[in-house]
Amino acid sequence: MGKEELFKQAMDAIISSDLKKAEEIAKKAIGEGIDPMELMSRGFRVGITRIGDLFERGEMFLPELIRSAEVMKSVSELIISALPEESREKSGVVLIGTVQGDIHDIGKILVASLLKANGFEVHDVGHDVSVETFIEKAQELNVDIIGSSALLTTTMKYQKDLEGELKRRDLRDRFKTMVGGAPVTQRWADRIGADAYGEDATDAVRRAFELLGKS
């Protein structure tokens, strides 16, 4: 089997949430000396991106997305273990939560699942999270990105407060910030000084990679 065919099978294994097949492909590729990172970026990661796109179009649903994300997580661990110790690097560490006064977390859960599936270490701090908690947890967990979600126009202001509080504590340069949620736009992100805005879960993953210079 050629390399291209193997990459296609890797992609298909993720789309069909087939853990056994995905592990077989990963082991086979590693055994044949294929670069594990190439297998990841041109095979498995293409599959999970496709899952995100299908979900965003209403052609795939949350249970399938979760199953595929789980397969992706397992196969990522397998591939990382095949890498030399010095090149075992996570995609990044993300703290994610829904802002204070807001209990909506469906979108945030989707973003967290897709980030995990793409190799990020994700710490989901839930909903109705105060600015104080965002900052304390981000420091405690030493994250790269703080992602905040808001579904309501009345709670978006806490995303702005987060930016202000990070500046006030002289921590703004230590973390990258991402915002999302139904009423949130790129315009809002620019206005409050957030580093990135994710239109949907797939876009959020793309932006997270960009923020960390790994796109």
């Binding site: 179009r57 209403g58 795939m60 649903f61 949350l62 249970p63 399938e64 469906i106």
Partner: peptide, 9 residues
Amino acid sequence: EFILGMHGG
């Protein structure tokens, strides 16, 4: 615009 499949079935 479309029904999100939070349950799916």
